Amino acid sequence: MKALIIDDENKARRLLEQLLIEQCTEIETILQATDLESGIKIIKSDKPDIVYLDIEMPKYSGLQILELLEGYVVDFQIIFTTAYNQYAVDAFKLSAIDYLLKPIDRKELQIATNKAMMVLNEQNINTQLQDLKKAFNQLALNKIALEIPKGVIFISHDDIVLFEADGMYTKTYLANGDTQLICKPLKHFVAQLQSLPIFYKPHRSYLINLKHIRELSKKDGHHLVMTNNKTIPISKDKRDEFMLVLREVFNT
């Protein structure tokens, strides 16, 4: 954890540094700046996690930090320090994590710092979750997650021959000859894959991958023979629609 103290008073900086060393052992690096402008440079170059910011300083007040950081992503926590409590409302309007009055109390410093670290940890977790979600979203573009008793397997859409309803379960037939029994009803997969044109439901009990059709037979009623030799009936109310699908997909 890295901290930055911005204060124009040398004595105040040294005192706060000593308190942080004694009370906040999670902070490994403590940087210092004598004014807001030099503090901004350190923020951009060293990226501290927590900034302890004095309000009353020459030229620029600590309350002007966001003005000087316009266009910069503020990913650190601000704890204001000041000898004057009339700034409290203004400080919190800038989304400061806390506000400490000088002389700084050891316990209050520890509480404020712990609060800042907690928020930072939550932000890190949220960032990690978002990155993980993006990765899985990318995976979902080409694969489907199938929950099996031993865990979850990720199967390419092209490797699925068909889904078959089995009560509240679904049998999933794969191109390699495997069959997986999934603890979800067929309608779950129909809803999940409805945006993918390669999957089609010719019958209330089946969802097929059009890429794995081997034959269309009109003998003894319309039915399909898949690449795994499984025969799939086409419902009477689906026959005209399916023939239209054939024309559009296969240009028959």
Rank of each mutant, 00 (worst) to 15 (best):
L68N: 11
L69H: 08
E70K: 12
G71D: 09
G71A: 15
V73C: 09
V74Q: 11
V74H: 02
V74I: 06
D75K: 11
D75T: 13
F76V: 07
Q77N: 04
Q77E: 15
I78H: 04
F80H: 02
T81G: 12
Y84A: 07
N85Q: 03
Q86S: 06
Y87V: 06
Y87P: 01
V89D: 02
A91F: 08
A91P: 06
F92S: 10
L94H: 03
S95P: 00
I97Y: 02
L100P: 00
K102I: 06
K102P: 01
D105S: 06
D105T: 05
R106M: 10
K107M: 15
E108A: 15
E108R: 12
Q110A: 07
A112S: 10
A112V: 04
A112E: 01
T113Q: 05
T113H: 12
T113R: 11
N114F: 03
K115A: 05
A116H: 01
A116E: 04
M117L: 14
V119N: 03
N121P: 00
N121S: 12
N124D: 09
N124T: 11
N124W: 09
N124Q: 13
N124K: 15
I125V: 14
I125P: 00
N126C: 03
T127Q: 12
T127M: 12
Q128G: 05
Q130W: 03
D131G: 15
D131C: 14
A135E: 10
F136R: 03
N137M: 05
Q138D: 12
Q138S: 02
K143G: 00
A145L: 03
A145P: 00
A145D: 02
L146A: 02
L146Y: 03
E147F: 01
E147I: 02
I148A: 05
I148N: 00
I148F: 01
I148E: 03
G151P: 00
G151R: 07
F154Y: 07
F154T: 01
I155C: 15
I155Q: 04
S156D: 15
S156G: 12
